[in-house]
């Protein structure tokens, strides 16, 4: 579903290599965890997948389509949730949801039932008619997640989705992520929470200084490391400078 082939990206006229010859594939129905220390290149990779950043080299394909040549079709099946909930704070929550529903072409009936379901689940029903500028960080994160789940895309790309969420919402999100993949969808997400990655992901990748240092199932990662006690230990061992 997501194929990243020899993708590179650098900043400052090539002096800082954020992503270096990255290749990996995420098949449909898989929850794929993307781990790495701060500044390893996770967000840059994610932004290239969703089309915010342009790779210097390599290709990214979504469901077999090149995400630059067939940008619109790729975007129509992908929804991105950023690490910082920077959204239109002067819009009301419901206006943001309607806007996203309109641009993704979600029908009136589906829109209504999914929004009502997720607003209820995230306890946002009372706040949805208020301007987003009055929301807390967690509420903003939840309204972006509500929009993503309302669209119900084939590919969900989430950057640190648990940050700012309360335990209940975090639990609901994990259930929704699992449900999404059981329905044949693909999920690519980054996280710093090792326990979540270990328990939730079908496969994991660890990126360090822009390069892929490990990729596989939890069992395969254990094989690559000396200290096999936990994902945290594996992560620390593989990302030692």
């Amino acid at each position: 579903m997501i194929e990243i082939n020899h993708v590179s990206k650098s900043y400052n006229k090539g002096t800082v290599r954020a992503v270096d010859d990255l290749t990996l594939t995420v098949p449909p129905g898989e929850i794929f965890g993307f781990l790495g220390p701060n500044g390893a290149g996770k967000t840059t990779t994610i932004k290239m997948i969703v089309g915010i950043l342009k790779p210097d080299g390599g290709t990214i394909r979504i469901a077999g389509l090149d995400n630059r040549a067939d940008a619109l079709r790729c975007k129509a099946m992908t929804v991105y949730v950023p690490d910082e909930p920077e959204i239109y704070e002067r819009l009301k929550g419901i206006e943001y949801l309607n806007f996203m529903g309109d641009v993704y072409g979600v029908s009136g009936g589906e829109r209504r039932s999914r929004i009502e379901h997720w607003l209820e689940a995230f306890e946002l029903s009372r706040a949805v008619a208020d301007p987003i500028q009055t929301y807390s960080h967690g509420m903003r994160q939840k309204i972006i997640l509500t929009a993503a789940l309302m669209i119900n895309p084939r590919v969900l790309v989430l950057d640190e989705p648990m940050v700012g969420l309360d335990p209940r919402s975090s639990h609901l999100l994990k259930e929704a992520m699992r449900e999404h993949c059981e329905g044949g969808g693909t999920l690519f997400f980054s996280t710093h929470i090792m326990e979540v990655a270990e328990r939730l992901c079908d496969r994991l990748a660890i990126i360090h200084k822009g390069r892929l240092v490990a990729c596989g199932t939890m069992a395969e990662l254990r094989d690559q490391a000396k200290d096999k006690a936990s994902l945290e230990n594996i992560f620390l061992e593989l990302t030692e400078s």
Partner: peptide, 29 residues
């Protein structure tokens, strides 16, 4: 916040053309 389900229901859009949706966003912002 004390708004109930009824107030919320009437604010659901049944779907605008993307150009209209972006135009409305610009106006509101």
């Amino acid at each position: 916040r004390v708004r109930g389900g009824k107030a919320l229901a009437i604010k659901f859009s049944s779907g605008h053309h993307p150009v209209k949706a972006i135009f409305l966003r610009e106006v509101r912002l």
